[in-house]
Computed example of a mutant assay.
Amino acid sequence: MPLDVVDLRAFYASPLGHVARRFIGRAMLRFWPDCDRQRLLGLGFSTPYLSVLGIEAERTIAFMPAAQGVVNWPSPGLSASALVEPTLLPLPTASIDRVVLVHALEETESPDDLLEEVSRVLNPGGRMILVVPNRRGLWARMDGTPFGQGRPFSRRQLSALMRAAEFSPEHWAEVLYVPPLQRRILMRSAYAWEQIGLGLSLPFAGVHVIDATKQFYRRAPLRATRRSFALRPILLPQPAPTPRAAKPSGSAGLEFPSPRKPHAG
């Protein structure tokens, strides 16, 4: 069942949602400390992070999937959010500098088509931040948060998807080691959980955060050529002709000499 925008907004308003936004947002800011003069697009439910990343951006847009719903963003001023089909974005090719995907890849039926569309709207050398639930993490195993919905991914699966869409991962972070429970003691010790998980490189982080760059040139696909083997006559070597004896003048053509008869005893 697709995520609903009302549930997403309620999650980020909760204490656990504040924890998720803080640690994911820190990883994003490490990758992109400055988006000055950049055209920034958020796809999925990315508004909690666009409010931090898009402060200095030239233009910031929030696209939300049709199956999820849309909310007005930002609250003051003109709205910069719209309801779209994620694999058919209403943007020209190479019109965006940076894209942030949150609660998007795990919810789509065709992840490869989604990344292909993101690659289309990004200009050459554009960058993408991808936030996806970790298949081995606790957050993907418990459905009390948005990261427990949809399809989680392993690191190998994400690498293959990005490579097929011509993205090159530049930085990779794993965050949210704290268990996804609304307990006050866990909320207070969330920073300690993150430090222990990062220090020991534990495999059960809740979320992958990847900074990837669109490659400048796309590989030209190799097309197999068909060879038609038509039936052709086979030329075999012929024996050399035996020379014929010349006839007297007036006779036409050449003929072989008659065989001699053996003499009788």
Rank of each mutant, 00 (worst) to 15 (best):
M1K: 13
M1E: 13
M1F: 12
M1V: 15
L3D: 11
D4T: 13
V6W: 08
L8F: 07
R9I: 03
A13H: 13
L16G: 04
G17F: 05
I24E: 12
A27K: 02
M28F: 10
L29E: 14
P33A: 14
Q38L: 14
R39T: 14
L41H: 03
L41K: 01
G44L: 07
P48A: 05
S51H: 01
V52A: 14
A57E: 02
A57I: 01
E58S: 14
E58G: 03
R59F: 10
R59H: 11
I61R: 06
P65D: 14
P65T: 01
A66K: 12
A67I: 00
Q68F: 11
G69A: 12
V70C: 15
V70K: 10
L78I: 10
A80F: 07
S81E: 03
A82D: 09
L83C: 12
V84H: 06
V84S: 04
E85N: 06
P86W: 07
T87N: 08
T87K: 06
L88E: 15
P92H: 14
A94V: 10
A94N: 12
V99G: 00
L101V: 06
V102Q: 03
H103R: 07
E106R: 03
E107N: 06
T108M: 06
D113T: 00
D113F: 01
L114K: 00
L115M: 13
L115D: 08
V118Q: 02
R120L: 08
L122A: 10
N123F: 05
G125L: 11
I129L: 14
V131S: 07
V131T: 13
P133E: 14
N134Y: 07
R135L: 15
W139D: 04
D143R: 12
D143T: 09
P146T: 01
F147C: 05
Q149P: 00
Q149H: 15
G150Q: 04
F153A: 02
F153V: 02
S154A: 08
S154W: 02
R155D: 10
L158E: 06
M162V: 07
R163W: 13
R163M: 15
F167E: 03
P169M: 11
P169Q: 09
E170M: 13
E170N: 04
E170K: 03
Y177D: 03
Q182Y: 04
R183Q: 14
R183V: 07
R184G: 02
I185R: 04
R188Q: 09
R188T: 02
S189Y: 04
S189G: 04
Y191E: 14
W193D: 04
E194N: 03
I196D: 07
I196E: 09
L200P: 02
L202D: 03
A205S: 10
V207M: 08
D211L: 14
D211F: 13
D211K: 07
T213F: 07
R218A: 15
R219W: 12
P221H: 11
A224G: 06
A224F: 06
T225I: 11
T225C: 03
R226G: 08
R227N: 08
L231Y: 05
P233F: 05
P233N: 13
P233I: 02
L235Y: 10
A245C: 08
A245H: 08
A246H: 08
A246T: 09
P248M: 05
A252Y: 15
A252V: 12
L254F: 09
P257K: 04
P259E: 15
H263W: 12
A264C: 01
